[in-house]
């Protein structure tokens, strides 16, 4: 059973230094209410695992603008000047990861795997310092799983077991991040009774979800 809590209670669980996998793609499908609560609390030195650093005023970009992030594993920074400035000033350390590799590394952690073998990045700076594995005549980069303490995600509906449905392209990284948190907190538009969600339409099974927060976003 997932527990229904407030955004402030969710934010209070996160400690300085926590590693947080956060869902969303350019802030679409981002857990804005929980992000705002973290900003309000001002918890610093966070490590974030995200597809992109979003916009200065939307999504995880707000954590960056408020200087709460000390390091990030991310595939794209291009829409957020603040993170590039903080990176150039040495305030934030960045590991840039190809987006598909990032998703598989996070998924691997949630799935109990040590890592994945991928051809993406061969012959580029991405392979530097990594083990290359030859398997049946093909080369792959060994990419380790990415661990996280918390996953903070956004879904459309949750039932009280934490089963989740999503909306259109707001699904994006959310079901993957949901698998990977030692503690997973889902921000949702609506909470329904057990039995109200068609099991065929559940995308994230409730087993992955520990806490549910109702969104304040309009």
């Amino acid at each position: 059973m997932a527990k229904i809590i407030s955004a402030a209670e969710a934010a209070a669980m996160i400690q300085p230094g926590s590693r947080i996998a956060i869902g969303g793609f350019l802030a679409v499908g981002a857990p804005e209410t929980i992000i705002d609560a973290i900003v309000e609390l001002g918890t610093k030195d966070l490590h974030m695992i995200v597809i992109a650093s979003d916009w200065e005023t939307r999504g995880v970009g707000k954590l960056v603008v408020n200087h709460l992030i000390k390091s990030a594993q991310v595939s794209h920074l291009g829409t957020n000047k603040a993170i590039q400035a903080q990176m150039n000033a040495g305030e934030i350390s960045i590991e840039l990861i190809p987006q598909g590799t990032l998703m598989e590394r996070v998924r691997a952690y949630g799935a109990g795997l040590g890592g994945v073998l991928t051809p993406t990045g061969l012959g580029t700076v991405v392979e530097e310092g990594k083990q290359i594995i030859l398997l049946e005549g093909k080369s792959y980069i060994l990419e380790p799983a990415i661990a996280s303490d918390f996953a903070i995600i956004r879904a459309q509906k949750a039932d009280k077991l934490g089963n989740l449905t999503y909306s259109k392209t707001a699904r994006n990284s959310n079901p993957i991040m949901a698998m990977a948190g030692k503690i997973t907190i889902a921000e949702v538009d609506e909470i329904v009774e057990i039995g109200e969600l068609d099991p065929e339409l559940v995308v994230s099974p409730g087993v992955f979800v520990n806490y549910i927060v109702i969104t304040k976003e309009q």
């Binding site: 595939s75 794209h76 190809p98 598909g100 051809p119 993406t120 990045g121 061969l122 580029t124 991405v126």
Partner: peptide, 14 residues
């Protein structure tokens, strides 16, 4: 300019 590779490396590889 360091915007990151996003999905480009996977696309070109696959």
């Amino acid at each position: 300019m360091v915007p990151g590779m996003g999905g480009a490396m996977d696309l070109v590889t696959g």
